[in-house]
């Protein structure tokens, strides 16, 4: 019974930047139905809709640790560097971040301009 209710949506997550939205079923650092993975931030989580495995989860987003906005994990909205930062905050405080992050943010900006760029699809 417990596992039945765990999968039920608790509410709808919506990114305050890109407006992507999805029902979430859990908020916190310990995703349900799995014991071996913990999260390093308070996340909005959905049972992974792309697999039938109950233990799989999908992190939708969390709050920016500077401005507190609810943002999705999409590369155009936020990044994680030991904490979650929304991209506007990252850009405002660019120099607080190591060079790798700065480069990455620049790259994203460039990519966002060219259509159908799907970052991270090639390894």
């Amino acid at each position: 019974m417990a596992s039945e209710t765990e999968g039920m949506p608790q509410g709808v997550f919506q990114c305050q930047l890109c407006a992507v939205s999805a029902p979430y079923s859990y908020v916190g650092q310990k995703p349900p139905n799995t014991r071996s993975v913990v999260l390093l931030e308070e996340c909005y989580i959905l049972k992974d809709p792309f697999t039938a495995d109950r233990g799989r989860f999908l992190v939708l987003g969390s709050r920016c640790s500077i401005c507190g906005r609810l943002v999705c994990v999409g590369p155009d909205c936020s990044l994680f560097y030991s904490k979650r930062f929304c991209l506007p905050c990252v850009r405002e405080n660019m120099n607080a971040f190591p060079q790798e992050i700065r480069q990455d943010v620049e790259k994203r900006k460039a990519l966002a301009k060219t259509p159908c760029g799907e970052p991270g699809s090639r390894t």
Binding site: V20, P49, F50, V59, V73, G74, G120, S121
Partner: peptide, 9 residues
């Protein structure tokens, strides 16, 4: 995670 979120988006 990135892949799955990408699909969702």
């Amino acid at each position: 995670q990135k892949q799955a979120f990408g699909r969702l988006a």
